Simulated scan of single mutants.
Amino acid sequence: MDVLISALEGLNLWWWLGIAAVLLIAELLTGTTYILWPAAAAFVTALISSFVGWPLELAIFAGLGVLFLIFGDRFVKPRLKAGADSGLNMRATYLLGERVTVVSGFTEGRGRVRHGDTEWSAKTEDGSDLAAGSSAVVAALDGTRLIVKA
């Protein structure tokens, strides 16, 4: 028991920053945001560790960890998830409503179109065939295939 108490009495700014760093690395590996909040609590505890003793440091760490987890999960996490619908890394979503040029004639409603310097697999909305060189408008997406209309 004396070993544990002497270890706890040795807690200082650098120990708390080390704990925060380890927790942040664990957060980076998991990506869940649940480990982020105890890491933030450890960082804040590091800032005040020079002014209080170890029992109060542990209480502050535990209290802030719970508070940060509750408020972070309630207010921050929904905003992070809202950014997932931004269209980032989904280049095809920006093509909706854009004009494309038919590269090769459509057969059975399927063919290839060009937008800028990229060719896309495409099919027509109504299954009609388009002639090479004609233009069409992107109406929807089906995975990586564009659905176009004349």
Rank of each mutant, 00 (worst) to 15 (best):
V148C: 09
V3C: 01
V138N: 00
S6W: 08
W14V: 07
G116E: 13
T33H: 08
D73F: 10
L17T: 08
A122L: 06
G10C: 05
F106L: 09
A122N: 01
M90R: 13
V103F: 13
M1E: 09
T101Q: 12
L4P: 01
V3A: 09
A42H: 06
E119S: 05
S86E: 14
L95C: 08
L47H: 04
E9V: 04
A59R: 03
G109V: 05
A21I: 10
A42E: 05
A40R: 02
K77F: 04
R145T: 15
V102H: 10
V102K: 06
L141G: 04
A84T: 14
T30F: 11
R99H: 13
V148D: 11
S86R: 12
P78Q: 12
G65N: 06
A46N: 01
G72I: 05
F106P: 02
W54V: 04
Y94F: 12
L13D: 02
A20E: 08
V66F: 15
F106S: 07
E57V: 02
G143D: 14
L146H: 01
G105H: 01
A132S: 13
A92L: 06
I19M: 13
A26N: 07
L67W: 11
L64G: 04
V103S: 07
I70K: 00
R99V: 14
V3S: 08
W16Q: 01
S104N: 13
L141I: 13
L58E: 09
A42K: 02
I19S: 03
Y94R: 08
G133V: 09
L24F: 15
A139C: 03
W16I: 01
W14Q: 07
V66S: 05
E98H: 10
G53A: 11
T144K: 03
A136D: 00
A136M: 00
V44N: 01
P78R: 10
L13A: 01
L146C: 03
G97S: 08
A26P: 06
G116L: 12
F68C: 02
A41E: 01
D2R: 01
M1F: 10
L23I: 11
A42L: 07
I48M: 06
S121Q: 03
V3N: 08
A132L: 10
A150L: 07
W120F: 15
I48Y: 04
I35S: 04
T32V: 11
G143S: 10
V103K: 04
I25E: 09
A40Y: 13
R114L: 15
K81Y: 14
I5G: 02
L96A: 02
N89F: 03
D129N: 12
N12F: 12
K77L: 06
A62W: 13
L64T: 06
E27N: 04
V148K: 07
V76I: 14
T45Y: 02
G31Y: 05
S121Y: 01
G83N: 12
A26H: 09
W14G: 03
M90Q: 13
G133P: 08
A26L: 15
D129E: 05
V137N: 07
G63A: 10
L36E: 00
R91D: 15
V100H: 05
